[in-house]
């Protein structure tokens, strides 16, 4: 545990030349720092992209990757595993709670809520009503989590809170590979949605009149959001704020709403923001690792406020 100082040149040598002058350095770089950096990039990319998709689909600047109840579903899954497993573990005598079962439980949770929302989407024609339904599902799951925490033991509650802090440092190589694979699928769906996203800027009626298959594109966008936000939440916990803020940041910087610019833009800014936040969360030479969930908001919120105040106008 703790912080290890590895010189910059040694780091490069280990990454590119595969030098093995110091085995522990090599181990730290390849098994901790690189997976962590890749995870941070993947998390930033996925959440920012989700935020952009949701804000355009719902034509609402407050929408984020979690408006469809994805994060609350994941929280519910995690809460059930951590706080509910005490009962089952008591019966069998072993605990199931580890990183992998947490990832499975939270992805099951978000998938379940997302499926419910998609099932509703079939009957609801109005996209705004869908937004409200997503928020309602969020409230229900949040309430269930509260009930679970009320009955939970102190150490279980602590474990759940640690999960909700979010982290990008707990993934091994196979998990990173899986997350990259899922992110790429979501990315490809998003790129294929660029044209309909641009049409949706004028509203659904105009988009339909310009030949967009509204139902199909709505499902594609929801599915892309689900797998991107769901997988990230499963592996890294509910990381707040990035998805809401990065699209706004990108729109302000590029001063456009064209998704041919915004999609690559949010990918770039999301990755950069998360890397910066992760660096701050684990400052060199400090032994503390702060929760990344707090850092993203502390760093990101003032930036967005500053941009909005400076331009005196919300560009959406």
């Amino acid at each position: 545990m703790g912080s290890v100082d590895i010189p910059f040149r040694a780091t490069l040598r280990h990454i590119f030349l595969n030098a093995t002058s110091d085995d522990s350095w090599h181990y730290i770089i390849w098994n901790y720092r690189i997976p962590k950096a890749i995870t941070a990039v993947l998390v930033g990319v996925s959440l920012s992209l989700c935020g952009l998709l949701m804000q355009t689909l719902f034509r609402n600047p407050l929408a984020g990757p979690f408006v469809l109840g994805i994060s609350s579903g994941a929280s519910l899954g995690a809460a059930f595993l951590i706080m509910g497993s005490g009962i089952i573990a008591g019966l069998i005598g072993t605990s199931f709670v580890n990183d992998i079962s947490l990832a499975v439980a939270s992805s099951m949770g978000s998938l379940l809520v997302l499926m419910a929302v998609i099932a509703m989407a079939r009957h609801v024609k109005d996209t705004m009503a869908l937004l409200i339904i997503g928020l309602m599902f969020g409230s229900i799951t949040a309430a269930l989590v509260t009930v679970l925490s009320y009955f939970a033991k102190a150490e279980e509650l602590q474990q759940y809170i640690y999960w909700s802090f979010g982290t990008v440092g707990n993934l091994n190589w196979s998990q990173v590979t899986l997350l990259s694979f899922i992110t790429i699928i979501g990315l490809v769906i998003s790129i294929f949605s660029i044209k309909s996203l641009n049409a949706l800027l004028l509203g659904e009626n105009y988009a339909r009149s310009m030949g967009v298959k509204i139902k199909k594109s709505r499902y594609l966008i929801i599915i892309a959001t689900g797998i991107l936000a769901g997988s990230v939440t499963a592996f890294a916990g509910p990381i707040a704020f990035v998805g809401l803020a990065v699209p706004h940041l990108t729109r302000q910087v590029f001063n456009t709403t064209d998704h041919k610019v915004l999609v690559p833009g949010v990918i770039l800014y999301g990755a950069i923001l998360l890397l910066i936040c992760d660096t701050i969360a684990q400052l060199p030479s400090s032994t503390y690792v702060l929760p990344i969930n707090a850092i993203t908001s502390v760093i990101g919120a003032p930036v967005v406020i500053w941009l909005l105040v400076r331009k005196r106008k919300m560009i959406f």
Binding site: L201, L202, M210, R251
Partner: peptide, 18 residues
């Protein structure tokens, strides 16, 4: 319109979508 943060030309260009 859902957004007015489009230039005149960008908005008119959307008409070419079909």
């Amino acid at each position: 319109l859902a957004t007015k943060n489009l230039t005149v030309k960008e908005l008119i260009s959307l008409g070419r979508q079909p």
